[in-house]
Design a protein around this nucleic acid. Structure first.
Lengths: 209, 209
DNA sequence: CAAAATTTGTGAATAAAATCACGTTTTCAA
DNA sequence: TTGAAAACGTGATTTTATTCACAAATTTTG
C-alpha cells in the first residue's frame, strides 16, 4: 500500500507532464518533474519505480507513455462520476470547476434541500435530496462531495453510504463516522488549511509544499 | 521546526476541543481528541509535548486553557486579514465561508478584473485589481488567496508579493515561482485531491485521513 | 565504432514520524 | 491518609519516508 502523499505527488507529476506536453515536449527527465513540483529527482524516480513506471536510461520518459501510466494508476483511464451534495458557493464551485473539463472527472448532478437551487435542465442538474439514492443507483455514481454545513454532514454521509457511494470528499469540518469500512473518506478543511498557512508565516518557515 | 502535518493535526485538535466545549465539557483527555480526529492518543500527547502544551496527569487538559494554547501556536490569538483574488465560485465560497465567522480569520476584500463583480458596499467589498496594492498596504493585509484560472495565477502572485503579502493560499493548479524566500505559499489543488480519493477507492484502502 | 556523457533504477543509508511502554503525577474513595 | 486507578510526559523503539550513490543502460560525439 502506498501513502497518501505519494499519490498526491503522482498527481502533480501528471499535471507537470501535461503542461510540458502542451509545450510540445516529447520526453521529460526526472529532473524536470522535480523542478516543476518542488521535490528531488530521486524522489520522482523512486515514486515511479514503486508503481512500475519506467523510462529509458539516458533518454528520460516519453511523455505520452508516462501520462498513460500515471492516468492508469490514478484511475483516470475511465470516467469517474461524482455528485455534489450542498449547492452553496463551495458546491457550485466544484460543479463549475474548470479543471475537470478535460479530465475524466465528471460532476453529474448536485443535490440540495433548498428548492430555489433545483434545476433539472442544467448541464449538471440540481435535484432535491430525496432523489439522491435513486439517482446514484440509476447512474452508477461512485463518488460524492459533501459541501453542506457541519451539522448536516453526518446525515448526508449516511445517505451517501446507503446509496452505495464508494468515496467521499468531505468539506465539512467534522470527522464523519461509519462502521462501513468499504467507504473511503477524505477530508478537506479550509479553515485548517488557512491556519496552517498562518502558522508557517508566523514562524517564517516555508515547509515542503 | 515542525512539519506541516503536525500543524494540521493541531488544528484538528483545536476543532475537536471546540466541539467538546460546546457540549459543556470542561476537560478533555488525549484519548478523546484521538477518537475525534482519528489518530492515536500517544500522537496527541507527543504533538502537545513538542509545543510545550501540558495537562494534568490523571486530569487531562482543561479545555479553555488548551484552546488558548492551541490558538496561540496557530496564530489565532489575533485577527488575521485575508484578501481573495478572483471572485468566481471558489473565491466567493471563501468570502462567504461560514467557518471563518467565529474565528480570527477575516476576509477583508475581494479583487477581480471583471467589473460586474465590483461591489464597494458589501461587507467584504470587491474592487478592481489595480486597487490591490494600495488596499493591502493601507489595511496591512498579510494573507492572500489566489482563486483565479491557472494562466493568471503567476501574475497575480507577483502582484501579491509586490504589495507585501506574506502568505498565499493558491487554488490554481500550478507551482508559483518566486525568488522571494520570505513569502510562504501553500497549494490546494482540487483535482489532485479528487484523484487521490479515486486512487484509494480503486485500491480499496483507506489511508490515514 | 569506441569512448564519453548522461540519466535511469534501486538497494543501502539516513532521516523523520509514529508508536510503545513505563515512570510520574494526580485524583478519588474508603 | 493511604492505596489503587487513571492519565500524562517522554525516552526508546519501530516504522515509514527520503535521500544517497553507483551500476547499468542509452545516447551522443568525434
Amino acid at each position: 500500500m502506498s501513502s497518501r502523499s505519494r499519490i498526491l505527488r503522482l498527481s502533480r507529476y501528471k499535471n507537470a507532464a501535461l503542461r510540458l506536453k502542451s509545450l510540445n515536449f516529447l520526453k521529460v527527465f526526472s529532473d524536470n518533474l522535480a523542478d516543476a513540483t518542488g521535490v528531488t529527482a530521486s524522489q520522482v524516480r523512486k515514486d515511479f519505480s514503486l508503481f512500475g513506471i519506467s523510462g529509458n536510461r539516458r533518454g528520460g520518459y516519453q511523455i505520452d507513455e508516462l501520462l498513460t501510466q500515471l492516468n492508469k494508476v490514478l484511475g483516470k483511464d475511465k470516467l469517474q462520476k461524482f455528485i455534489v451534495v450542498g449547492v452553496g458557493n463551495m458546491g457550485r464551485g466544484m460543479i463549475n470547476y474548470p479543471g475537470f473539463i478535460k479530465s475524466e472527472i465528471k460532476i453529474v448532478a448536485g443535490f440540495d434541500i433548498d428548492p430555489s437551487k433545483y434545476n433539472r435542465k442544467a448541464d449538471a442538474p440540481v435535484f432535491p435530496m430525496d432523489e439522491l439514492t435513486a439517482f446514484v443507483k440509476t447512474n452508477e455514481v461512485e463518488f460524492g462531495i459533501i459541501a453542506v454545513p457541519d451539522f448536516a454532514a453526518q446525515e448526508v454521509f449516511e445517505r451517501l453510504i446507503q446509496a452505495g457511494i464508494k468515496g467521499v470528499l468531505n468539506f465539512a469540518p467534522i470527522r464523519l463516522k461509519s462502521d462501513n469500512t468499504d467507504i473511503v473518506v477524505h477530508n478537506l478543511n479550509l479553515e485548517t488549511e488557512i491556519e496552517n498557512l498562518i502558522y508557517f508565516v508566523n514562524t517564517k518557515v516555508n515547509p515542503a509544499e
